[in-house]
Design a protein around this nucleic acid. Structure first.
Length: 323
DNA sequence: AACCCGCACAACCGCCTGTGT
DNA sequence: AACACAGGCGGTTGTGCGGGT
């Protein structure tokens, strides 16, 4: 398949930063057509712009579109980007579909200028979301002590203080992605989902530090996390009541994430958790006070029908099968 | 004041993909 | 099936700006 010539190569077509006048011309032209562009290639001529159609499209989609959200990224958006990047990689356009009003270009830039460096400082490889060799660490964090499969989730969580619920959700997502990435066999996928489910269920009756340790042991097959890690993060806070309430609100009669709620819900939930005041670490509370917090969450094996009917999960599954 | 440097982000470039013929 | 084309995507570059020397 040959590459088509682009009008960008035409002599005399203007390049570089857009002027206010050009912006105005482009916006007015598109608005006049009721927001319908038609052919981008033909647009410059029709609008009276001495620009490449591609350049017009970029300017419109990345800057002039009325639904674009400007301004700094919130903590919630940042966490969402990290979580999605862990699962999707550098697929900025797909990631952008889960951040309302943000463009792929904006997210890509934000990743390269902020998040990537932040992860590097934490000793985390921003590409694989796994720990870098110790000599790559700038601050000697606990990243090197963590199981690979959980690292990205913990990073996302520790960046701004997620709770155990968010981590559990992240773990299940990780399980899903591992399942998808490792084979195309539906039986194995279901088995892995069941394994993930059992991990999540196993966490319901112990205090969080042990809970996490159990989960880690099950997932990694090795006891490689230092207990001190738990004291050094704000992940493990006593917000399960709030979380459970949110989960019930989202999906009456079942637990939401295990019932394959869309990742958007996951992330919205995560954001909602993070927006609460950080509660004291659960490890600081008397054990009996934890009883109410740590009731079984009645997690169920994800319903594969709902998985397939949800566009996000369908996309993840499709991507996985293409690998 | 002049210069340098790093950062943030807009814009470009080349390749890929989907679709129509 | 093969090809042409337009749009989309992700990597990279260019530009403007602020801070430090």
């Amino acid at each position: 398949m040959g590459r088509s010539p682009c009008c960008c190569h035409d002599a005399g077509v203007k390049k570089g930063p857009w002027t206010e006048e050009e912006d105005k011309t482009l916006v007015e032209h598109i608005q006049k057509r009721g927001g319908h562009v038609g052919s981008w290639r033909g647009l410059p001529k029709a609008a009276g712009l001495n620009r490449c159609g591609k350049s017009c499209r970029l300017r419109w989609t990345n800057y002039l579109r009325p639904d674009i959200k400007r301004g700094n990224f919130s903590d919630e958006e940042e966490r969402l980007i990290i979580a999605l990047h862990a699962g999707l990689g550098n697929r900025w356009a797909t990631i952008a579909t889960h951040l309302e009003g943000r463009t792929d270009n904006e997210i890509k830039n934000y990743w390269n200028t902020h998040i990537r460096k932040k992860l590097m400082r934490m000793g985390v490889d921003p590409v694989t979301h796994q720990q870098l060799p110790p000599d790559h660490h700038l601050d000697g964090t606990s990243a090197s002590l963590m199981p690979e499969g959980l690292l990205w989730a913990a990073v996302a969580a520790s960046l701004a203080g997620l709770d155990t619920g968010a981590l559990r959700q992240a773990q299940l997502l990780q399980q899903l992605l591992q399942s998808i990435g490792s084979n195309n066999d539906a039986t194995n996928l279901i088995a892995n989902l069941a394994a993930a489910n059992s991990v999540l269920n196993s966490s319901s009756s112990v205090v969080p530090s042990h809970l996490l340790q159990d989960q880690l042991n099950m997932l990694s097959g090795a006891n490689c996390m230092q207990p001190g890690y738990l004291c050094n993060t704000s992940i493990f806070t006593g917000q399960d009541v709030v979380q459970r309430q949110l989960i019930n609100d989202m999906s009456p009669g079942t637990s939401s994430f295990a019932a394959a709620e869309p990742a958007d819900h996951l992330c919205n939930t995560t954001a909602a958790f993070a927006s609460h005041d950080v509660a004291p670490a659960v490890d600081m509370l008397p054990v009996q006070e934890l009883a109410g917090l740590m009731e079984p969450m009645e997690l169920q094996l994800p319903n594969l029908c709902s998985l397939e009917s949800d566009s996000f999960w369908k996309e993840v599954l499709d991507d996985g099968y293409r690998l």
